[in-house]
Design a protein around this nucleic acid. Structure first.
Lengths: 144, 144
DNA sequence: TTTGCGAATGATAATCATTATCATTCGCAA
DNA sequence: TTGCGAATGATAATGATTATCATTCGCAAA
């Protein structure tokens, strides 16, 4: 579960909207949620939180390190709980589901590529866009 | 140089705005241009092309395979000439300059990661966000 | 070379995601 | 319990991109 301490620890006042958003991410079946997703899910569960607040809270959580923001294709950004351990993503073009992976080789090669060019890696994003060939991907596209 | 045949070959009628946009990408010093960049550069060179047309032409060129679209952080997308050969990008967080690279190891590992999970890779994007440590990066941020 | 039609263009309105504004309300420490 | 500054929420504003639609253009047929 989440405690208000989580918020205090990152310098954020413990408020109702913040606790609800954090709780949502901890209980939601889908790890990756857009601001719109969060807003609608909260409304659906009877929690009345303003859209502006959702955007604000998501940004604050990102800055505080509680959430990680991703810029997938399509313009809108999605957030997920920061598990501490970095990972990249495979996005299914058919059903929209996101699967996570971590590959040490890829990570180290990136470091090498950057340092070879005199860059200090600050961050990186790797998204593999693929099709599920088999009936393997059971997740359905997010219908609206 | 560019010939109208380029456009014909991809099923696009040869028009003045399209030729101008294509020409711009072939002659511009900066490979990566946003729609806004293209629009302003054309205006600056005395070519009067509507902003809506710029967006349309860029999308058509992308679909035709002449350009590749990238979704960098920040919301707006940038385009570059499709050289045929795939590559990834290092984006300098300080000056905004984009450097390209290709690493066979990273490429093959991505294939492996995807196939291991039953995915058929359709596409991927890898952006390394870094700081130029040395005075190595001579490119200045795009001032407006 | 002129003609005609459907595609392309451009000015602008509309849309979508996100951020800014600002009056009201709330968290929390004294 | 009280008070103040931070947080909230309704809404306006912004920035990027797309849709609309009347006018214009490319190009092929005559």
């Amino acid at each position: 579960m989440h405690q208000p301490e989580h918020l205090k620890n990152v310098g954020l006042k413990s408020t109702v909207p913040r606790l609800k958003v954090l709780s949502l991410f901890e209980s939601a079946q889908e790890r990756h949620l857009s601001a719109e997703d969060v807003y609608k899910l909260l409304l659906a569960s009877g929690d009345d939180v303003g859209l502006a607040t959702v955007y604000r809270v998501l940004t604050q959580f990102e800055q505080a390190g509680l959430l990680v923001r991703h810029y997938f294709e399509g313009g809108k950004s999605v957030f997920e709980l920061n598990q501490g351990k970095h990972h990249d993503h495979i996005v299914c073009l058919q059903c929209g589901h996101v699967e996570e992976f971590y590959d040490a080789t890829i990570e180290s090669r990136q470091e090498k590529v950057a340092s070879d060019r005199g860059f200090a890696v600050h961050d990186h994003s790797l998204y593999i866009y693929a099709d599920c060939t088999k009936a393997k991907c059971p997740h359905k596209a997010k219908a609206d």
